Amino acid sequence: MYCDRCGEPAAEGDPAGDHAGCRAAREMEPPRYCAHCRRRMVVQVTPLGWTARCAEHGALQSAP
């Protein structure tokens, strides 16, 4: 599994070792990387939310 914000392996973490910065940023930002395959996703942000699409694993979207 990979971090959906920075794309690094989830077990490694950021310099602090826990992806705390990534989790904090993800409260306001859409994911940028697929957590399954680490591919960069196509992200579209609208006033109503966001969608993110991985070529291999499909689409995600923000909660309504």
Results as ranks from 00 to 15, higher is better:
41 M>N: 06
4 D>E: 12
45 V>C: 12
41 M>W: 04
5 R>P: 00
48 L>D: 12
53 R>A: 10
2 Y>F: 15
23 R>C: 06
43 V>Y: 07
13 G>S: 07
43 V>D: 10
61 Q>P: 00
50 W>H: 05
57 H>I: 00
25 A>K: 14
32 R>I: 08
58 G>M: 05
31 P>I: 00
48 L>W: 07
47 P>V: 10
13 G>Y: 03
63 A>R: 11
18 D>Q: 14
54 C>N: 05
24 A>N: 09
64 P>E: 13
27 E>A: 14
34 C>Y: 03
19 H>N: 11
57 H>N: 01
62 S>F: 01
61 Q>K: 08
19 H>F: 12
19 H>K: 06
43 V>W: 09
31 P>S: 01
39 R>K: 11
45 V>F: 03
22 C>P: 05
35 A>L: 03
43 V>T: 11
52 A>I: 07
23 R>H: 11
2 Y>T: 05
33 Y>W: 15
5 R>L: 15
60 L>F: 04
16 A>Y: 09
21 G>Y: 08
13 G>H: 05
41 M>K: 08
51 T>Y: 01
33 Y>H: 13
17 G>Y: 11
12 E>V: 14
35 A>Y: 02
35 A>R: 10
62 S>C: 06
58 G>H: 02
53 R>F: 02
2 Y>A: 04
15 P>T: 07
33 Y>A: 06
63 A>D: 09
53 R>C: 06
2 Y>P: 08
23 R>Y: 10
6 C>L: 12
43 V>M: 10
51 T>H: 07
18 D>R: 15
32 R>V: 08
61 Q>G: 04
48 L>P: 00
13 G>E: 10
44 Q>N: 09
1 M>D: 02
62 S>Q: 11
10 A>L: 13
18 D>A: 13
28 M>T: 14
13 G>M: 11
20 A>G: 10
1 M>W: 01
24 A>V: 13
4 D>R: 04
26 R>N: 04
22 C>Q: 09
39 R>Y: 05
33 Y>N: 08
6 C>D: 09
2 Y>R: 01
21 G>I: 07
35 A>D: 06
11 A>D: 06
52 A>R: 05
63 A>V: 06
64 P>R: 14
43 V>H: 09
30 P>I: 10
11 A>P: 03
43 V>L: 13
4 D>T: 01
7 G>M: 01
61 Q>D: 07
9 P>M: 03
59 A>V: 03
39 R>T: 08
35 A>H: 05
39 R>M: 11
53 R>S: 10
53 R>K: 12
48 L>K: 14
28 M>I: 09
5 R>Y: 11
18 D>N: 15
24 A>Y: 13
14 D>C: 15
54 C>I: 04
25 A>F: 10
51 T>C: 02
45 V>K: 14
21 G>R: 13
17 G>P: 07
6 C>V: 11
43 V>N: 10
53 R>M: 06
38 R>P: 00
28 M>Y: 12
62 S>T: 08
33 Y>I: 04
9 P>D: 01
16 A>D: 13
45 V>I: 15
